[in-house]
Design a protein around this nucleic acid. Structure first.
Lengths: 158, 158
DNA sequence: TGCAAATGATACGCAAGCGAATTAGTTACC
DNA sequence: GGTAACTAATTCGCTTGCGTATCATTTGCA
C-alpha cells in the first residue's frame, strides 16, 4: 500500500474519495463545459455571463467593483469585459467623478442574455440534480458555501 | 425584480444560491489556489501532482492512459508531463511494443512528492471542513460524485 | 499484401485564471 | 501647493483546460 490519500482518518471520506479523483475540480470543469456548450450559440461564455448577472443586480458598476463582487482579479474582469463589449453586450463609460475608472453598463442585448442564462442554469441543475434527494442537495450547497468561506479565510491569512 | 436566478422552484436552493455566486466554480478555484500555494516550494502544481498520484497507483502508464484516468484531453497531459519531466519528477520511455506511445515513470523524487501531497491534502481538508458536521461532509461528497456522473452522461449525450 | 482507418503524441491557437509591472489619475499629508 | 502614496485599468507572461490539425505508427480488412 502507498500513502493514505484519503487525507482523513481512514473511516471518513474526504475530498480524495475512493476513486482518487479531485471531485471539486472535476465537477466545476464539467459544469463549465456544459454551460459553455449551451451558451455558445449566444456568443458568450459562462464566465462572461456572470459579469452580466452582476450588472443585472446593479448596472453601471466599475470594473474593480465587478472584480470584487466576482472575487477575481481586476485583470480577469478587464478581459471578460473586452469580450462582452466586442459582442455588444456591455458598454464602458469613463466615470466622470474618477477618470481612472470605467463604469460598465449592460446593453439591451446583454440584459436579454441574463434571461437566457436563467433558463440554462435551470437546465443544467435539472441534469446535475437528477435522482438526488433534494434535502441532500440543500445540505451540499450549504456545506460548499461553508467550505468556500473557510478556504477564503485561510487564503487571506497566508 | 429580475428573472429568477435560483434555477429551481423558488423555495428550493440551487447552484446559484442566494449570494448569486457560482459556488462550484469558486470552491474549485479557491482550493486550487491553496493547493498551489502549499505545493509551490516543491516546484509542482496541483494538476501536475495529480499525474504523480496516478503513477503511484500504476507506474509506467502511457500518456493517453493517464489522460483517460484523469478525464482530460491528451494534449493537457502532454504539457503536464513536460513540466514534470523538466523538474525530474517523471521520465518518458518509448513503448517498445508501440512506438507511437510514451510510457511515463515516476522518479524517486516524484514518488516522494506523492507523500508530500498526502500531507497537504490532509491540511487543506482540515481547513475546508472546519466546523462542518462530518456526516454532512459525507453527504456532500456523495452528492458531488453523483452530480459529476450526471453531467458527464449529459456531455457524452451531446 | 497493401491501403484505409484509427490511435498516440504534439504544435498552434483560444479562454480564464493568476501575479508583477506599467501608466494614468486621485488622495493625503507636510 | 507639491510630493508621496494609493488606486484603476491594462499589458505581459505564466498555467491549465479545450479543439483542431498534423505526423508517425499501428491495426484492420478487402
Amino acid at each position: 500500500m502507498g500513502p493514505d490519500l484519503s487525507g482523513q482518518a481512514r473511516s471518513r471520506p474526504s475530498s480524495l474519495t475512493v476513486d482518487y479523483k479531485p471531485v471539486f475540480h472535476e465537477l466545476a470543469r464539467v459544469r463549465a463545459i456544459l454551460f459553455d456548450a449551451k451558451l455558445a450559440p449566444h456568443g458568450i461564455t459562462i464566465s462572461q455571463a456572470w459579469v452580466l448577472v452582476h450588472l443585472w443586480q446593479e448596472d453601471g458598476l466599475s470594473q474593480s467593483k465587478i472584480a470584487e463582487r466576482m472575487d477575481v482579479a481586476t485583470v480577469t474582469t478587464s478581459k471578460l469585459i473586452d469580450k462582452l463589449e466586442e459582442h455588444g453586450f456591455v458598454t464602458r463609460q469613463v466615470d466622470p467623478s474618477d477618470r481612472r475608472s470605467n463604469l460598465v453598463f449592460a446593453t439591451d442585448e446583454g440584459k436579454a442574455l441574463v434571461r437566457v442564462l436563467t433558463k440554462i442554469v435551470y437546465e443544467v441543475d435539472e441534469v446535475a440534480n437528477a435522482g438526488i434527494d433534494p434535502s441532500d442537495i440543500a445540505t451540499t450547497l450549504t456545506v460548499l458555501g461553508r467550505m468556500r468561506e473557510n478556504l477564503k479565510v485561510e487564503l487571506a491569512r497566508i
